[in-house]
Computed example of a mutant assay.
Amino acid sequence: MEKKSTFDLVSDDSDHKYHNKNIAGNCFSDTKSAIYKRIMKEWKILEKNLPESIHVKAYERRIDLLRAVIVGAAGTPYHDGLFFFDIQFPENYPNNPPKINYHSFGYRLNPNLYASGKVCLSLVNTWNGKKCEKWDPSNSTLLQVLVSIQALVLNANPFFNEPIYRSVSRSSYEKKSRAYNEDAFVLTCYTVINLIRKPPRNFEDFVKEHFRERGPVLLAACREYANGRVRIGYYNCNEIASSSTKTVIKVKDSLKVSLRNAYCIMYKQFIGCGASLEGFLPVLEIAVQEKRKSKRSNGGNGIFKKVMGKIKSALGLKRKKKKKST
């Protein structure tokens, strides 16, 4: 099968975040200008080196603009989601890094990705990182920015992206990290819903095709997470496939409700994408394992005590209760 291109040219930039930003001069249209040549170099780097999990579209009439989508990686709470970014090369590029805006739909699903669309990252000089982490006009590229977002921002433990938690013992904050992952996955599901309802221009077919294929995975993940069979983020992850445990993970009622609601909406959206959902119900089924366990525990212990009482009595081992003195 022929590999699909991860870099394409399109013409319609009308819904781009930076579409209306005024551009001084003609530096982006002058083919002899230094910035024009640098951007063409960036295009070639992207075309040649983009991984299959990152797709970029550049604009024929506005070479200063690009739009990128990153596929959430397995083993993270962002798995199988799509994360879109609008990018603009500034007029003094590469002296300054590219501007970048995240399509958030109003959700804050990562410490580095704000609900406002701001991307907080040292490499684009929106965070005060070490000098070696900041934008270097001589060596830094847009490809590095995108790969950094995928690997360092949309990672397995985003809770520790917060600067105040980066240097602490991870084990002492494991519970909070897991809770953050739970919220991140639910918000990823709602991001999916919004993307299907209103896909970014020029990516309509890409979004539909992606969720036609990966929609069933997200539904199955909701089912496994809600029933405590897999920890959030690790469904369909090869790293834990061989170390799965029969121990049922305790799932908060609030998380079950959130997953159930997201599942129901996604189910309808994936049907619209043409996904094959055989084996899935329109409503998420959650086993009442904890209640059953509780009933078995309470009822079982009661029956066990009665039986043992009769056995001890028959064997003369059961002590008779002393009568209270009057």
Rank of each mutant, 00 (worst) to 15 (best):
E182M: 01
K118N: 12
G106Q: 08
K41A: 12
Y225C: 05
I286W: 05
K41Y: 15
R201I: 13
V186P: 00
L255Y: 07
K305Q: 11
T188H: 01
C273H: 03
K99E: 09
I311Y: 11
N236Q: 07
G215S: 03
P158H: 06
G25A: 11
K208R: 12
S258Q: 10
P94A: 06
N110F: 00
N49H: 15
Y59G: 02
A34H: 12
L66M: 15
I70E: 03
Y59F: 09
C189G: 07
E285I: 15
R292S: 08
Q289M: 02
I39N: 07
E91Q: 15
R62Q: 05
L109F: 11
E91I: 14
R166Y: 12
K318H: 03
D13C: 12
K130I: 11
Y165W: 14
K130T: 15
K322S: 01
R108C: 04
N112A: 09
R62G: 00
H55P: 00
C27S: 14
F211N: 06
P199T: 02
N227T: 04
A156G: 13
F203R: 01
E239F: 11
Y180M: 09
K268G: 03
N20H: 11
A275F: 07
C27V: 15
Y173E: 07
S171D: 12
N202H: 08
E2C: 01
G233L: 08
F84L: 03
E162G: 10
P282R: 02
Y107A: 00
A314V: 06
F160E: 03
L317G: 14
L46G: 07
G228A: 05
R223S: 15
I35D: 03
S116N: 10
S172Y: 06
K295G: 02
T188Q: 00
E213K: 13
L259I: 09
